[in-house]
Design a protein around this nucleic acid. Structure first.
Lengths: 246, 246
DNA sequence: GTCTATACAACGATAGAC
DNA sequence: GTCTATCGTTGTATAGAC
């Protein structure tokens, strides 16, 4: 009866964003946000989740993931115990195991969602003709998604070592694919040598990831996500503007 | 009989580095490197370490820390057990506790060393008159130290959440002090507004920390530490060169 | 200074009642 | 669909021999 909302989910089919855009515009147009993401998780893990009543499942999934983020954020995922998780969610140990197969698989579910978003969200900007403008879209897209889904991104970044070797390699490959896409756009500007483009693409990854990695810092300094994104874009555009020699 | 080698350790008294310098020059002139750091650790923790014979202590300290880095790197500090550590070092549980007070304090010892280096190493470049040149020195200093002591920096960055709340705040304060120093130098260039200087200083932190945080990426791509440092410096100088408006 | 042996708490996971 | 009760394992840390 409940129809899936994200069948073969892709960004290409959604209303495009303008070249330069702020967080408010992003939030209004994104097909995936911090409210309907539980449905996205549910649909990606049907079969693994024992609970069949969708509304109950979504409710408890939200409780479980939110509690996991809070606990992992403060003491780390490995230090967090399933008994902690039960206390915070109100579920029992047996009840919890209706939603997760194991503690490790809980981490893998989170990783999967964010990796999927990171890898396909750049489609949303592929219609922009100028490569540097398209790059700006990708950078803003990443920053704004990590703002909207901050606990998810933070978890994935800091807890990916808790995964097994195979899934860690999947995570590394995903980061390299995103970076390669940025490098390609930088190369297409015609302003950078190939080596410089790859290095600058790596710097771009470091810059945008800093928003969720050091959230405490920017919150303390009262810096908005728009100010941060503007600043990152300015740094990257300045470097490209050099056109080769220093 | 064994005299301390780092009494009241500071960088100010050591031979200064030129404005622009590579990793080789850094390595030749640094008073603290990956070989004598065990002595540095020993001297900072005298009183806590039960073993009094210095040569034995240095030997086992190296074994313990190297094994900790390897284990924390692969499975995470929290997942690493003291039995793992015994197996890797060849020590017994009882023997191990002659060097550490607890598992948590082992992490705190590592944190302490790197925080101390990060906070005082900028003294090494305070003789440079031009603020932008001095900034370049600080950036290169951080990158080259994190290259020399890569496992230490990597551990501190990713495992700081394993510490208790008080020590986590100490770590955050340390990062903010380093960043504030960079912001001051950027402001002194006269090319940036105060807000822009602080944001760019934060970007600097993200850029230089990427060298130890994503070491696997740069190793795979066969990028040298000198190429990386040059690229970071180029990005920052380009942004400053904009002189305000975009 | 290092070892073996052990104490004791806490963990992830499951079985079976409701 | 969720609970309580419990299993076997593994963790940190220590005591006492050598």
């Amino acid at each position: 009866m409940d129809e899936p909302r994200f069948p073969g989910f892709t960004f290409a089919e959604f209303q495009p964003l303008p070249v330069s855009f702020g967080f408010a515009a992003f939030r209004k147009l994104t097909p995936l946000d911090d409210r309907n993401i539980w449905e996205f998780v549910y649909e990606r893990n049907i079969g693994k989740i024992g609970v069949k009543r969708k509304h109950t499942a979504l409710d408890n999934l939200e409780k479980i993931f939110v509690a996991t983020f809070r606990l992992a954020n403060t003491i780390g995922f490995r230090a967090m115990t399933l008994r902690d998780l039960c206390r915070e969610t109100g579920l029992s140990m047996g009840g919890l195991y209706g939603y997760i197969e194991s503690k490790d698989q809980l981490a893998a579910m989170i990783e999967d969602v964010i990796r999927h978003i990171s890898e396909i969200s750049h489609q949303w900007f592929s219609h922009i003709p100028d490569p540097l403008d398209q790059l700006e879209g990708c950078l803003r897209g990443y920053i704004y998604f990590s703002e909207l889904l901050q606990p998810w991104f933070y978890f994935v970044f800091l807890e990916s070592r808790a995964l097994d070797q195979e899934q860690r390699n999947i995570a590394k490959d995903a980061e390299l694919r995103v970076q390669a896409h940025l490098a390609l756009l930088l190369k297409d500007t015609g302003a950078l040598a190939l080596d410089d483009a790859h290095l600058l693409a790596a710097h771009c990854m470091a810059l945008v990831q800093d928003w969720h990695l050091k959230r405490w810092k920017y919150r303390t300094a009262d810096i908005s996500v728009d100010a941060f994104a503007d600043s990152v874009v300015k740094v990257v555009r300045a470097r490209v503007g050099l056109r080769g020699a220093p």
